[in-house]
Write a protein that binds this DNA or RNA. Structure first.
Length: 425
DNA sequence: TCTGGGGTCCTAGGACCC
DNA sequence: TCTGGGGTCCTAGGACCC
């Protein structure tokens, strides 16, 4: 929508303050929260993750939750006894020294550090701390953008004192307030925009503050690897490396047209911009969810025929959980989809847009079932997921029906694909 | 006994409408 | 009948992030 707001008269306008944007990152958030709970584990190799029944039961079998904090160290479950398929969410420094780290499979980690103590992720507790640190920030600087459970952007520009010392004074104030409230530390980067602030927050970890200005681009940013840019992941990193581009400075030195040719119009131009430290995206305080989903990896790979009953139960449960999420958060969805991961890790998705919006578990189950009929099921499955998108707030759903009955468009393809599907669902 | 769960955004092709 | 262009919606897949 075009912005037709008239410019304020020049005489009324105050001189614009330079943008100061902060990125705040909690230090080792999950591990720190767990250590507050179990102080007896400080300094020991601890791995957090898995989050599966094995660990939960091992812990809960002790003496009940109230007494957990007094468990003697030698009674905590060890990584070598873990039997699930989870991955590590985070590991303490003592555990990292053995080579274990985030996203590593628990089984692989158990080989590297069998004596590590393993704890399940307590998401309720994590969320409690997340709300606490975010509300502490919002009281001081209300223009705050959520970036996941342990990160936020904050616009310092118009906060009283936000310009002092380039933002360092306000950053220090926020750091102290969070520590007083939660006993947790964080690292903050302050810069002219979100892109640079995000990079700056990594400069001085843990419990650090780093402030950068436009003039620091060449000295502070250009020597960094391209992977430090938020948005350049493993694939783009590899492709850039293949072109001989390792650092952000080398990226900045590339001809814009060359990058556009290599990475496409949008990505190529974007890479050139960010390499020069340019980013004018605003700090956004509110945003509506685009989709909600539930998925689960099975304890063992399941086959659509032999494990039909088990699979059907899991499928129904996922639909019920998703419906519960939608209802609790007050949304209805028009598009329902499924996601499968086969035993060879290939992923397939199907979705279908319905005539009406819904948050009803049986309706979701029905549409998701139609999606499942359109996907090959002759191979073992490792994961099943259900997704709701095209969301609107419940009560605000348009009463008009979808312009086009999508089911018709899908009919031909459905007929072809379902041949292999044994009409299971 | 490798490899979780919950998201966002982008691309690209086809259908359909004007 | 042929040609063409713009715009929107729908679907599948993929990159990326926390």
């Amino acid at each position: 929508m075009p912005d037709v707001t008239p410019e304020p008269a020049p005489s009324a306008a105050l001189p614009a303050l330079p943008r100061r944007i902060a990125h705040l990152d909690m230090d080792a958030f999950f591990a720190s929260v767990e250590l507050l709970r179990y102080p007896q584990l400080k300094g020991l190799p601890v791995v957090i993750g898995g989050g599966r029944r094995q660990v939960d039961e091992a812990l809960m079998a002790r003496q009940g939750e109230r007494a957990l904090r007094f468990i003697p160290v030698e009674e905590f479950p060890l990584l070598k006894d873990y039997t699930g398929r989870g991955v590590i969410t985070t590991a303490t420094y003592a555990a990292r020294q053995f080579g274990v780290g985030s996203a590593m499979g628990m089984m692989k980690a158990a080989k590297l550090c069998p004596q590590a103590i393993v704890l399940p992720v307590d998401f309720d507790e994590i969320r409690r701390f997340s709300r606490a640190f975010k509300s502490t920030i919002a009281e001081i600087a209300p223009l705050m953008q959520d970036r996941g459970i342990d990160e936020v952007y904050i616009d310092f520009t118009d906060v009283p004192g936000g310009q002092r010392d380039g933002g360092r004074a306000l950053a220090r104030l926020i750091q102290r307030a969070i520590f007083e409230k939660t006993a947790l530390t964080c690292s903050i980067g302050v810069a002219p925009n979100k892109l640079l602030a995000k990079m700056a927050s990594e400069f001085d970890k843990p419990n650090g503050i780093s402030v950068i200005h436009e003039a620091d681009l060449q000295s502070c940013i250009w020597p960094l690897g391209v992977r430090k840019i938020n948005g350049i992941g493993p694939k783009s990193g590899d492709r850039l490396a293949a072109l001989g581009i390792q650092t952000i400075g080398e990226l900045a030195a590339q001809d814009r047209q060359f990058l556009v040719k290599q990475f496409g119009k949008a990505s190529g131009a974007w890479m050139h911009e960010v390499a020069w430290g340019r980013d004018d995206s605003p700090v956004v305080t509110e945003s509506e969810p685009v989709s909600m989903s539930r998925e689960t990896t099975f304890e063992r790979d399941l086959h659509a025929v032999r494990d039909k009953a088990e699979l059907g139960e899991i499928f129904t449960r996922l639909c019920e959980q998703l419906a519960g999420d939608l209802q609790r958060k007050g949304y209805v969805a028009k598009t329902i989809g499924i996601k499968l991961r086969y035993d060879d890790f290939r992923i397939a998705t199907r979705d279908q847009t319905a005539q009406a919006y819904t948050a009803d578990s049986r309706t979701i189950r029905k549409i998701a079932g139609l999606c499942l009929k359109r996907v090959p099921l002759d191979q073992r499955l490792r994961l099943l997921g259900v997704r709701a998108s095209a969301l609107v707030k419940a009560g605000e759903a348009p009463v008009h029906e979808s312009k086009r009955p999508v089911a018709q468009a899908n009919a031909a393809q459905t007929a072809i694909e379902s041949i292999a599907n044994y009409s299971l669902f």
